[in-house]
């Protein structure tokens, strides 16, 4: 799907954590983000959405203030209402949980 260029990383998380088949996982992500199936598969739409909502991008320049990596995963976990193991571990280690 293009990973962080679209919502491939998010759809993949639903397959892993909830064992959702591809169509169900895409529908879940689209519903949670308030987007259409076409939009969650589109690189232009999702670049804007990901930058606005801090979901992490595939490019840093010219978006140096955008989130990436762990900080983006915090926001993805909240938006999709899923548990991300590394986020939970980070919270524990940082003493914020």
């Amino acid at each position: 799907m293009g990973g962080v260029r679209t919502t491939g990383d998010m759809v993949m998380r639903l397959q892993l954590s909830k064992k959702m088949r591809i169509d169900e996982a895409k529908r879940y992500v689209a519903d949670k983000l308030g987007l259409t199936l076409e939009e969650i598969c589109d690189v232009v739409t999702m670049s804007e959405v990901r930058e606005e909502r801090g979901f992490g991008l595939g490019h840093q320049e010219p978006c140096t203030e955008s989130t990436m990596g762990m900080e983006a995963k915090f926001r993805i976990a909240e938006a999709l209402d899923i548990r991300i193991n590394s986020v939970e571990r980070f919270k524990e280690h940082a003493g914020i949980k």
């Binding site: 799907m1 293009g2 990973g3 962080v4 260029r5 491939g8 990383d9 759809v11 993949m12 892993l16 595939g58 490019h59």
Partner: peptide, 10 residues
């Protein structure tokens, strides 16, 4: 690189 250059999903 897999994430930001190759566009892999995992």
């Amino acid at each position: 690189i897999h994430e930001r250059v190759l566009g892999c999903d995992s």
